[in-house]
Design a protein around this nucleic acid. Structure first.
Lengths: 356, 356
DNA sequence: GCGGTTTCTGTAAGCGGTTACAAGACCGCG
DNA sequence: CGCGGTCTTGTAACCGCTTACAGAAACCGC
């Protein structure tokens, strides 16, 4: 090796289009980088004179700290990863809205990752070092597979999907919600209820179905199940069938609102009176539910609150981890969110005088 | 200084809850960190034997590269910042959906930042070093202020707001859309149209209003403007007024669908026939528009496509910047998205036999 | 005027990767 | 067997920032 290396050159006059670094500020202000850092982070003792010199230099250079570098040395990114299934409709805007509300009060950003049908879970790994924790919602996936792909040691909260050990989770009490809807339909006089379920592989769908079946049994009414896909189209098909008499029923309970609305529209198109001839209820209580005519009875979840809660819980776990409770007894922390029934026109029957 | 410092200790046996680093992998595999890096990044020549040793060590330790460190040394984060006004409803889920679609095919993540009413723009600065570029949508803000807060040298695309110099922008041709709606109402026989505008400070609102006024003038019909707030409530108020005759009108053109729906519901409640007595049209064509009864005529924008386009344009700018075109002549690149009218029941009038 | 504090400020070692550069391994050939 | 060239691999210098630690400066009472 040549004894004198080619002289590192002080370099970087912050010209070009590039950004000024903390070194540029230090040089211009005639102080050390440590001092600049102190000025920007407050806490430490810095003399007023130096503070103003640094601030002036920074302003002059248009210096903005580099979040990436900062997060690397502080081992804290200030962002949380949100992993969601393919986004559709109001459910997701509400969820994100709630998450954002909570995250922004804590000074956290939201890094969105959508699990598209095909590839997907590998992207989870990529998140290490880019986020402080993860909120994962993947009702369509096998929990074991998800667990396997989780970056180890990263705080996580699971939302509305099968619980993982060692991680907190937030679940919707689908059974209770579905049961409430079916009980309500039965109380309104329905005798033959058709349950339009979600896809068989989906956990929410399974639980809602179970709740519906339990309530039907308890109320002594018959319940037949038709599998749908959570989209308007499958609701329409069932609506047509009921209207045509192919399926004999006096009430439809759909596992989500979009299917309920599809059914409702189909019934209307076919001239079937709702709720007089067939009552309809959905699940989720999307904003649209109260706007369709007749307004749709639905099982409501405060989606935004759920999102906010998930973020709050994650923040707590992150804090705990930072304070040394490594994979300690901090787990558990499973919460179930109990939905409530919102009764509207599609079930306002008084066929038996027992309607609510 | 003591001549022998306290011996740095090789440390970090990847135990604890922490993650294994590239050094751990190197140590276990008995190679240098450079080699591990090479194995993980493919490109370079590495002998098969070493590759497998490294891969085994990595698998054994559950090693996952640290995105933060990686982005620091490569000066590329793999994420783009999305800055949006307060999220509401389907518009945003569609927008995000489109952005995500485009971003994920390019291997980019989406870092969401919502500009809440009060504080806000300072958060933009925080993004430096955390994202490779920014898609900014801030129709409610003064462009000059936004420009001032932009981290210098960061690629950006502005969405549906006043153009910034040096940055690309994507705009909705609000004038054309509003004009089409008003022209359609006039063609259907409307003589006195009330335009329910958005908040005065909002650029979209201003442009839609201008388009409506121009079209009304061209068609020789009277147009009176009432300022709303883009939410259902203000639509309801105007609906009530029209029903009560406080405002005399035979057609309502609202600057967005939620207000149109609010008006529509109010009219229905008051027993005013739509479209026979009063026609109604909205703007945005949210999914809800076709589901209300009667179905709402609206000006449609392919929101998801717009989001996708914004991301694509940003990706192009980022690539350009990386290739040395620093704030070069690459600017301009302004695109306008022309919306189209979707005619539905609320304007299917044939009062004059001229209805569409 | 000097040791003992207390308060600043600078030096340098990380954080976890990438990568230019040079050194070593290996090969074919005269 | 020595030599130039091609592959592999290791060393170490960054990327931009934080922070433990130590040195300098200022202040104090004697």
């Amino acid at each position: 090796m040549s004894p004198a290396r080619p002289d590192p050159v002080p370099v970087a006059p912050a010209a070009r289009g590039a950004h000024a670094t903390i070194h540029d500020v230090a040089r211009v202000a005639g102080v050390s980088v440590a001092s600049v850092s102190r000025v920007f982070n407050g806490r430490d003792h810095v003399r007023a004179a130096m503070r103003t010199r640094v601030e002036e230099a920074a302003a002059q250079l248009g210096y903005v700290p580099h979040a990436g570098a900062r997060s690397l040395s502080m081992a804290r990114t200030g962002a949380i990863g949100v992993v969601l299934p393919d986004l559709h409709g109001e459910f997701f805007s509400e969820l994100l809205r709630g998450m954002d509300r909570e995250a922004s009060t804590r000074g956290l950003g939201l890094l969105l990752t959508v699990l598209h049908d095909g590839r997907g879970l590998d992207t989870l790994a990529v998140l290490r070092g880019q986020v402080d924790g993860l909120v994962v919602m993947a009702p369509q996936l096998d929990p074991a597979v998800v667990a396997q792909h989780m970056p180890r040691g990263l705080a996580a909260v699971f939302l509305a999907c099968a619980p993982q050990d060692g991680s907190a989770s937030l679940r919707i009490d689908n059974r209770a919600g579905a049961a409430a809807a079916v009980a309500h339909l039965a109380a309104g006089g329905a005798k033959r209820i058709v349950h339009l379920s979600g896809p068989a592989g989906n956990l929410d769908a399974q639980e809602r179905r179970a709740g519906a079946e339990a309530a039907a049994a308890a109320a002594g009414v018959t319940l037949c199940v038709v599998e749908g896909d959570f989209r308007e189209g499958s609701g329409a098909v069932v609506g047509e069938c009921v209207a045509a008499g192919t399926i004999e029923a006096d009430a439809i309970f759909a596992a989500n609102d979009m299917m309920a609305i599809g059914a409702l529209m189909a019934l209307k198109r076919q001239g079937v009176a709702v709720p007089e001839q067939v009552a309809v209820a959905g699940f989720d209580d999307i904003p649209l539910a109260r706007l369709v005519t007749p307004a749709l009875t639905s099982v409501a979840i405060d989606i935004a609150a759920m999102g906010a809660r998930a973020v709050a819980q994650l923040a707590a776990r992150i804090a705990a981890a930072r304070n040394g409770f490594w994979e300690g007894a901090t787990d558990g922390a499973d919460e179930a969110i109990v939905p409530h029934l919102v009764v509207r026109e599609t079930t306002m029957i008084s066929r038996q005088g027992t309607g609510l």
